Simulated scan of single mutants.
Amino acid sequence: MKTSIARNHHFISQAEQRLNAIDATVKPRNQRIYNFEILQRESPRIRKIKSAGVKIESNLARMDLYALKVLEGAEQYNLEVAFQKYENDCSRITRTLLKNLKASKPESLKSELLRLYVLKLVNTIRNPYTIKRTLEMFRELRGVLPGSETLQADFISFDCASRPQVAKICSEFGVSEDEYVSWLKVIFLLIMQPLGEGLNLIESLIKNLIENTNVIKNFLIYRYDEGLEGRGVLLCDRMIDQRPLVGTQMQMFNLDATAFMVVILVDVKNQDFVSLTPEDASLDFRQGNLIHVDYAENNLEALKNFNQHCVWLANANVFCASENPFGVDVEMQIPVEESLQNRFGSNLSSVDNEAANSGL
């Protein structure tokens, strides 16, 4: 495993955030995104935090979040390098997919969609807001060691490694040290251990899902013209993943400032909204590698539903390239002076006067 000097670890990659930049034409280090705090979820209401937005290079990141072992000096063993191939692919594939949607039939873009789906799911397991959920999803990996001797030696060495960030991370995300370290190990096992066909474990699991002959797979892509007023598409600080009915899973993903994707998976034999006879239950429904793809433009009801789900399910914040995300109420930002006045009352004026009189 290679050492790294990267310490500012993004849990929503910069690549994904830059697809939602306020101005994507400026230099990457200057790109910003609007950050909104959630004021109310049921009747979605949000408020912009900074008028100019926040810098993407420092947004949705924590110092040393993925550090497995901190070494002397500036180096550490972390998962950043392993994430990079997914991050680089995310921008490229998203742009290719959206560029070709109008010129091609959606069904012809299945390979891009499936790769993008893998990338989005990798983002899910790396999100610290879902540490406990990830551990539950992959509870079978508890106590498992990598098959590779080299990786196994690295993996075992993490048990007694120096990780100064532990207390701060655990406090912020509400997990124990054991849960945090177990989460890092689960990610390691999912993306670092090579398996057959050039795939790692997470890619193999998704491949098995796609090839499952009894799971119906629907991909719906919604896109909005850049000139459409108030069409802001939100970016959530964690993935939208729901199970509205038995045997049914619905996932939603931001693609960029103009588009989002909905994935609906239906396990035909385990769903309960359509009754199956014993004869039907014994059938092979032949859904292996069969992907249903739909594409729609400027469907504002779908955008409203997506943005409201983002506000409902986000941890604390949502993000956007637009100041006016569609379908949610945006409260006026309180000017700094007014905010301070509300907080400190009349004492603020007396403090200002004293400072002025003293020459400060």
Rank of each mutant, 00 (worst) to 15 (best):
P146H: 01
F319A: 01
D178Y: 12
Y34I: 03
G345N: 08
R29V: 13
N20K: 05
M261K: 04
V293H: 01
I240C: 04
L113Q: 00
F11R: 10
V81S: 13
R142H: 15
D64S: 13
V246Q: 15
P335T: 08
N123F: 07
R62C: 01
T96N: 14
A52G: 11
V26M: 14
A6D: 09
N8I: 07
N299L: 04
A167P: 06
P106W: 02
I221K: 02
L201Q: 14
S58E: 12
I206P: 06
G198M: 10
V181E: 14
N342S: 12
E354P: 02
G230M: 07
R126H: 01
S157R: 04
A61E: 07
Q287Y: 08
A74L: 15
A355Y: 14
K99D: 08
E16S: 13
A296Y: 12
V81F: 10
L68N: 04
K50F: 11
I216F: 13
R45M: 06
E72Y: 07
E80N: 02
E172Y: 09
R238Y: 02
N270E: 14
I131S: 06
S91G: 10
F36H: 03
D23A: 06
F36G: 02
D159E: 15
Y77G: 00
R41N: 04
L190W: 10
R92C: 05
N307L: 04
N78G: 06
Y117F: 15
I93N: 08
E37W: 01
D329A: 15
N324M: 12
D23F: 02
R231Y: 04
I202Y: 08
R133D: 10
N127S: 00
V274G: 03
K85S: 12
A61R: 07
F219L: 00
L290T: 06
S51M: 05
E229Q: 11
S176H: 10
F260N: 00
F155D: 02
R126C: 01
E337N: 11
G230W: 05
R47P: 05
F326D: 02
L190M: 14
S282Y: 03
N35L: 14
D23M: 05
E203C: 10
D267T: 01
L340D: 09
R243H: 14
P128Y: 03
K132R: 14
D329L: 15
V118W: 01
G359H: 12
L234P: 07
D256Y: 03
